[in-house]
């Protein structure tokens, strides 16, 4: 009996891999955006001593290969602290922090894009700090940030393919398995690539619609 042919079960395998990739992508995106947003707010309020640390860490994360970060977390931290870490945990931690670093930069420039005069005007009107953040800065910063953020997320979706290297059974890992079994790299990798392509396109399309909706709500409608 030969196992080298494609079987209907391979479709299940592909869907499984896609599920792992998407679940990890969505999870790390939510965690990463939350951390990135928190960092941007802390940065905005000039909490003493935090600014240089935040900038240094995010720059280091942005300027080093994700693969090395994955190795550091997956192989390095367990050996250093003598703890156990599963591939999924290491992947979640690494990609989340990586997304956070990129999101921080976007959110920071989003907050900075709000005109200084508007904040002063709001202060004169007697709005509190949190009211200014919620009512004045947030809506405009959100509309400004969505575009670049979608670009980053499309990129992060592709970055998740690297977690296959530390043994997470994501879509790329499934591709590896199928490739080794069937020895038909052209078909296997073209299919895997197509699935990633469609996922990225769907994401970009959804992002574009959200951006259009947000921009509508902040557009200057006149008095």
């Amino acid at each position: 009996m030969r196992y080298a042919d494609f079987t209907p079960y391979d479709i299940v395998l592909l869907l499984q891999g896609l599920g792992v990739t998407l679940a990890l992508f969505i999870g790390t995106t939510l965690i990463g955006l939350t951390i990135g947003l928190l960092l941007a707010v802390v940065h905005h309020y000039r909490v003493p001593g935090c600014r240089p640390v935040i900038v240094l860490v995010t720059e280091a994360l942005k300027n080093s290969p994700v693969l090395v970060q994955l190795f550091l977390v997956f192989f390095g931290i367990p050996a250093f602290l003598h703890i156990r870490m599963t591939p999924v945990e290491a992947a979640t931690l690494t990609i989340s922090l990586n997304t956070a670093a990129f999101a921080f930069v976007v959110f920071r420039s989003g907050i900075e894009s709000v005109d200084r005069d508007q904040i002063e005007a709001a202060e004169v009107f007697g709005l509190g700090r949190s009211q200014i953040l919620r009512l004045v800065i947030a809506p405009q910063a959100a509309a400004f940030s969505v575009g670049p953020l979608v670009g980053i997320l499309v990129n992060q979706l592709q970055v998740t393919s690297l977690i296959s290297v530390i043994g997470v059974f994501d879509l790329t890992k499934i591709g590896n398995i199928l490739n080794l079994r069937t020895l038909q790299p052209f078909i296997v990798w073209a299919v895997i690539g197509l699935i990633y392509y469609l996922a990225a396109k769907t994401l970009a399309h959804a992002g574009g619609r959200i951006e259009a909706a947000l921009r509508r709500s902040v557009k200057w409608g006149g008095i």
Binding site: L67, V68, F75, G76, I77, A79
Partner: peptide, 30 residues
């Protein structure tokens, strides 16, 4: 990165090796 992988596997000190590697890449790109 490939060389560092070999060094990490030889020395059993992955944290030190990859931490240095991360700093190296960050300085190179900076």
């Amino acid at each position: 990165t490939g060389a560092a992988k070999i060094v990490a596997a030889t020395t059993f000190k992955p944290f030190e090796v990859y931490a240095v590697l991360l700093v190296l890449y960050a300085s190179l790109t900076t």
